[in-house]
Design a protein around this nucleic acid. Sequence first.
DNA 1: TCTATTAATTAGAATGATTATCACCTAAAA
DNA 2: TTTTAGGTGATAATCATTCTAATTAATAGA
Lengths: 150, 150
Amino acid sequence: MEQRIEKIKKQLHSQSYKLTPQREATVRVLLEHEEDHLSAEDVYLLVKEKAPEIGLATVYRTLELLSELKIVDKINFGDGVSRYDLRKEGAEHFHHHLVCVECGAVEEIEEDLLIDVEKQVESDWGFQVKDHRLTFHGICKKCQVVTVKS
Amino acid sequence: MEQRIEKIKKQLHSQSYKLTPQREATVRVLLEHEEDHLSAEDVYLLVKEKAPEIGLATVYRTLELLSELKIVDKINFGDGVSRYDLRKEGAEHFHHHLVCVECGAVEEIEEDLLIDVEKQVESDWGFQVKDHRLTFHGICKKCQVVTVKS
DNA sequence: TCTATTAATTAGAATGATTATCACCTAAAA
DNA sequence: TTTTAGGTGATAATCATTCTAATTAATAGA
């Protein structure tokens, strides 16, 4: 935990941003909820427990900043809220998501499945790919069982 | 054009919805702007030219309905607005998008590039894929030229 | 250290997209 | 014709996000 915060601090400093107490509190919340896909509101409520004087706008600004620095990924599942994910150590890209249309669970895929597809896009469309967003909608393992049973 | 409207009419009827004049006007606008990615507001303004008495809420309701029937796809490029695309004749899935981070242009890919990836997800993660959303962010052909020149 | 300047913060107002409500309307069924 | 079930338009309400103004903290230079 502390090392990762230290690292993020350096990333901020390298762009002459500071790791203020509010920003640190926000980052800590993200680290403690790496598996979840928190909305700005969610983050705000969690940060407030440690740093009650923080403002919602500050959380938004912090998430926006972290997003620009590629420390977090801002994602959108189409439910009208942006969600923020810590980018995994060393990851170049967005990870992918499996969204269950039955129960709403979100699973993550760390592996990059799109190497070949990106190559194809670059050669066939002349489009220089920088990043991607891939989400599958379907039925997760758990819900498949339920469906079969009922 | 007329055949496609006829077809959409049937799709609506099959779920006991009606193709009202407002709905038809909305569908016509979508058909006439198949290549664009119109927001609800855009659609509203265009429909208003033909049917000035239509209300914004009706446009939203119509787009939502068409989206449920998989006649249009509701997409989200993260700019805070939902956009609506007519689904191509016979297409099972969402098409993919190439969004240029320089000029904002959006190009479409009709081909389904994800057949193999979907198979892999189904076998490796036991997730039954129903649909997908794939967007690439990068630099389009045009902007690559400009970048090289300058 | 003191001071000027700049960056960051907060609370709350403002904005913009979307959804809900409600009174009215229409078309077709009974 | 009366009934019924959707549809519709205007407008209000809601919700996420951004902006604003005033305040405070941090920093660099004298």
